[in-house]
Design a binder for these strands. Structure first.
Lengths: 404, 404
DNA sequence: AAGACTTTATTAAAATTTAACAAAAGTGTA
DNA sequence: TACACTTTTGTTAAATTTTAATAAAGTCTT
């Protein structure tokens, strides 16, 4: 794509994340001069992509014209995968679903056909909803596992050999495709639409069957050297000998995931603890978790207790994060955020006990309110994040050559 | 300073870190076009700051002219502080000392006069060595404690109230002053001159009386939100009840610093362990540490054992780092690096036991060879890192204003 | 050894930024 | 309330920078 095309996309990207901006705002965000920005804006208006919204109140001088996106010109196809289900939706430029989200069965574990299966689902969704490819900015896919975003490979699921999943789908679907780890996308949606907006250094904990971590550093998603950063679930901090799914012992996950919460609840019920909690489903952890939370929110002491235990353990992990990365904000997000402020006290307690006060007092703790929509929204953000970026990798040359 | 002045400084900065560069290299590093870079280079040559070095070998085309700095035109004043001593030196553009390094007594703990004391030392050094301020690019100071680089405040030592230490010294000395945490500077010098050159995501462990950590992320020193990132010493990962200097228990430092090594050695001697180690100084930990290392390097089994124990504990901490940040490289640096490869086996052992293999295998472990010069060198790098940067903070404006 | 391809340096053309100015509003003072 | 002064946006003109074109110097392939 040519240079000014990329710039126009850059404008659309910023308007996507900010709803309305003045030419001066865009000039600053794009590091381009006002004359250029205004020229491009007028072209975008002419093409029906952008519209004038009216004047903003003065901040002490002439009032700026505000610009916004035309709502129904471009869309993003979003995909959120977990171990058993794959959800697909279509969102407009105002972060709303314009076609109903569909939930497909697609098992990831030990499924050599996962990739072609995924392609078929997307094709199906496009076909059923009569989606015109020309209106699609791109496809964003969130998936569990070790994802190397740059190589486009998932080392845990969706085998694709040495080939890029993203490139494979791009060729088949003829649309830009971006993939990322689910926890990273939860973090991205908190950064763009949730409690982490405009913040620079934020840790987003994805409380779920494991404990994921999305890291925002200097206003960008940080993925580490191979895209594996944020493996919070498996930091070794316990001396109990519980075996973890990863083969080690002492992982945070063995004492602090929602699955552990369910285990504790079941054990309590077996041991005749005083609680209103009744039988919990063995096959549907989602349901079991929601029962525990709703009981806890109604004041059930046992449920509150076990949630506190989990929270305290999470807090121990967070204390380590605070020491190493000194973030301004930690957000508890993902499925587990529905327990809301029940987490706050035990987490804060653990942080107080295990951190240097000067550090802890500079880090806020927030519970996410964006919730379960997070991952599909994050996948959409992933697409728009890359909108207006040149995908071609520039070859790096060595410097400091020998003198002849 | 005007724009082209900053650009020229930018050229000098890159030549400082790279010795010799072609115009094409500089064009890429500065994101400026070749014609501009060549114009500026010619001006710098005319002013006697830069010289042509000759042609580099061809890489398949016309040979590029290489440029380098004139050696004795500009200097950097470097200061490295620890709890009791302050070292000051003067370095040229080839990272060599041009005046002897002087060691001054300056106690930091509970010293309300530390700041004026520091100023006096620098004044003294300038005076004694007849240094012409006009030739100095700036003053870089490394110091222990919680340092907020942006505010220029050290919250642990060198009380300056709410005022900036850097600005205070700048006014008094009439030279640009930059301060930073000692471990950050060790990391910076590894990044610029040591094993971390050209790497993007590197953790540099500063093995000393505590365990510091300097974090390089995306090719830049990462300091966290308040400059407190890298408090590796106090991550809570042990269940032993040893009280730490910070008031908590279980800190890495209580089981993994060089002071602990000395303690273990003394205890061993008291208990009559088989070792060639004799009496260790109670007042000079530096000397005690060096005795242990030299014995270990000669093959003393007991010394090797206790070094291994410390190494293993460090490794446990590193395993956590690897999970969270997925670095490409971890460097063991600082005072403790003199034990060299003795660290390697126990650290690797701990990492193998406590990390997911897929993660661990992507992270190299290196022992620093730069060694004790690190901190003064890092302070010089800090000055040049900021050379050619506009120091004025641009005021950030809010976006997304309401529509009228 | 000739022609195709690379890379750097110089120059000319195109594009962008900066600066200057005009327009529209707020602020302060008599 | 009128009028001068400051602030901020939008437009036009001048200056600068970048991109493209071209020349120069060298490597590589057949």
């Amino acid at each position: 794509m040519d240079k000014i095309g990329l710039l126009k996309k850059g404008i659309l990207k910023h308007l996507y994340f900010n709803k309305q901006l003045s030419s001066a705002d865009l000039s600053e965000k794009l590091s381009k001069s006002l004359p250029v920005v205004l020229k491009l804006l007028n072209e975008l208006i002419r093409d029906g992509e952008v519209m004038e919204l009216g004047y903003a109140p003065s901040t002490g001088g002439r009032r700026p014209m505000l610009y916004t996106l035309q709502k129904n010109v471009r869309y993003v196809l979003t995909v959120a995968m977990d171990q058993v289900f794959t959800k697909i939706g279509l969102m407009n430029m105002e972060h709303e679903f314009v076609k109903p989200v569909r939930r497909y069965d697609l098992r990831l574990a030990d499924n050599p056909e996962a990739l072609s299966g995924l392609e078929a689902l997307i094709q199906d969704y496009i076909k059923i909803n009569h989606i015109d490819g020309a209106t699609i900015a791109g496809i964003g896919i969130g998936m569990p596992g070790f994802v190397d975003v740059e190589k486009g490979i998932n080392y845990s699921f969706i085998p694709s050999g040495e080939h890029s999943i993203a490139e494979f789908l791009e060729e088949r679907l003829n649309l830009p495709v971006y993939i990322d780890n689910d926890s990273s996308l939860v973090a991205l949606s908190e950064y763009r639409f949730g409690a982490a907006r405009k913040r620079k250094n934020v840790m987003v904990v994805n409380m779920s069957w494991g404990v994921g971590l999305g890291i925002i550093i200097k206003g960008e998603l940080f993925r580490g050297n191979n895209g594996f950063a944020g493996e919070f679930s498996h930091i070794p901090i316990f001396t109990s000998n519980k075996l973890c799914s990863c083969g080690k012992t002492g992982c945070l996950e063995t004492e602090a995931s929602l699955l552990v919460l369910i285990e504790k609840a079941k054990e309590g019920i077996r041991n005749g603890k005083t609680t209103n909690l009744r039988h919990l489903s063995d096959t549907n952890p989602e349901e079991a978790y929601e029962s525990i939370v709703s009981m806890a929110l109604k004041g059930d002491k046992f449920c509150i207790e076990i949630i506190s235990e989990i929270g305290y353990n999470i807090g121990r992990g967070l204390a380590i994060l605070i020491h190493i990365l000194n973030p301004e904000l930690i957000i508890l997000s993902g499925r587990g955020a529905s327990a809301g402020k029940l987490w706050r006290a035990p987490i804060q307690q653990a942080i107080n006990e295990h951190s240097i006060p000067r550090l802890a007092e500079h880090t806020e703790i927030e519970i996410s309110t964006v919730g379960a929509r997070d991952e599909l929204l994050g996948a959409a953000a992933l697409v728009m994040e890359n909108f207006g970026k040149d995908r071609r990798k520039k070859k790096s040359k060595g410097t400091g050559i020998e003198l002849i």
